[in-house]
């Protein structure tokens, strides 16, 4: 589990996050949703330690992450996998080298063991056989899946996904969502996803927080969304007239 306690983050005079206190649960897909510019990515970067909070604490289990020294932080980070919005695959390396990079850097496995692990991860994301391709030779959806394979190669306890569906067609988005959910459940890990994709919210939102102007405006799960009277959430989720009609129809049933 990951817990944040009264997190504030300011850049110069501008405060982006105002006292965020929330929890992200193990074995669940935890979603951070909200409009662009509400501080979702900042919160995610704070959770993984790429940014330091101006005030407040982030707990991994019972450990205060920002209270640790560099070496201790590294131990936590080795339990973290992250899928970036841009996939962030190293373009000078092949798919196999990308996935093997954490294994090369942090394990003493033999070459055979590493290859087996890479093949397993590629198989897990349904991309067997593309080991020798370069990221530029693969599609956006494939790059996301390679990013997931790299993120899970060290068997992380915490998986972070920044906009995993951005730039993908709806069908591929569903595939990615399903993949993330099944990995979360199979490995019983804490997954935090930053998204504004409504399909993701309604499909895999087991624990959702809505950020609005740097505050937590709503928290709940996908089943509670339809019934909520929270204006900020309904404005955000059912922004289009089509979705508003769908909601009305669902509520009338």
């Amino acid at each position: 589990m990951i817990r944040t306690e009264n997190i504030f983050k300011a850049f110069g005079d501008k405060t982006v996050l105002h006292g965020i206190s929330t929890s992200f649960y193990k074995g669940k897909t935890n979603l951070i949703i909200g409009r662009s510019g509400t501080g979702k990515t900042v919160l995610l970067k704070l959770l993984v330690g790429l940014l330091t909070p101006t005030e407040g604490k982030v707990y991994y289990g019972d450990t205060d992450f920002f209270g640790l020294n560099k070496k201790e932080k590294r131990q936590i980070r080795m339990k973290v996998g992250m899928l970036f919005q841009s996939s962030a695959l190293f373009d000078s390396m092949t798919v196999e080298e990308n996935i093997r990079f954490p294994l090369d850097m942090f394990t003493n496995h033999t070459a055979k063991e590493k290859n087996m692990r890479v093949d397993y991860c590629l198989e897990r994301v349904n991309l067997s056989g593309i080991n020798s391709k370069f990221p530029s030779e693969t599609s956006g959806g494939m790059q996301k899946r390679v990013g997931i394979a790299r993120a899970i190669v060290l068997d992380p306890e915490f998986l972070f996904c920044d906009e995993p569906n951005s730039g993908l067609d709806p069908k591929t988005s569903i595939l990615i969502d399903e993949l993330i959910r099944s990995i979360t459940q199979e490995n019983n890990i804490t997954t935090v996803i930053n998204t504004h994709d409504m399909n993701s919210v309604m499909e895999i939102g087991e624990n959702i927080i809505l950020l609005h102007q740097g505050h937590v405006a709503w928290r709940g799960n996908k089943d509670e969304i339809l019934e909520t009277e929270n204006e900020i959430l309904t404005d955000f989720i059912f922004a289009s007239p089509f979705l508003q009609r769908l909601r009305a129809a669902a509520l009338n049933k």
Binding site: V48, R74, V80, D91, M105, F160
Partner: peptide
Amino acid sequence: KEHIDAMEIMGV
């Protein structure tokens, strides 16, 4: 391209 961020999160 966030490659450095990706490495830092890995613990590099």
